[in-house]
Amino acid sequence: MKGIVFTEFLELVEDKFGIEMVDAIIAESKLDSKGAYTAIGTYKFSEMLQLLENLSNNTGISIDNLLLVYAEHFFSVLQTSYPGLLATYKDPIEMLSSIENHIHIEVMKIYPDAELPIFIVEEKTENSLIMIYKSSRAMHHFGLGLMNKTFEYFNSSAKIILEKIKEDGTEVRFLINKIND
């Protein structure tokens, strides 16, 4: 997993829960990196899992919700760093449906060894989208958070339903319906 995920995560944790929490969850985890992350580095996903688990234990918030909040924060990082990417889209449905074909490709250009999930568009209309999320990391709520923020970015909102296809969350169906106001 790319270092930027870790660095942003720890900064959010520091922001929301303080530097002591950061110190704590690092100390509680067995990390090869010893908790030293640089955005351009690459680290084991299992480290993120440990950090998340310990954070969840310390805060009492579920991992899913933690991821949701993180994702919503992560979106602003993306916004700042890659405004051009977002500007190519005029519509949230359009943007989400092209995650696989466009966005992830752009990501691969910069971080060629990034491990990204696979999104398969099952159905797409002007106001709805059904996508399958496949990833060994099962960070579906991270995806959900990003999706929420996407709609917000386009001054819109949507009802998104998550269906677990596989129990472990490595395969999930997102049913997205734009709410027209």
Binding site: K34, A36, T38, I40, G41
Partner: peptide
């Protein structure tokens, strides 16, 4: 701080 240094070195 140490973690930052290490991170910087990595970078």
């Amino acid at each position: 701080l140490l973690r930052q240094k290490m991170a910087r070195k990595q970078a």
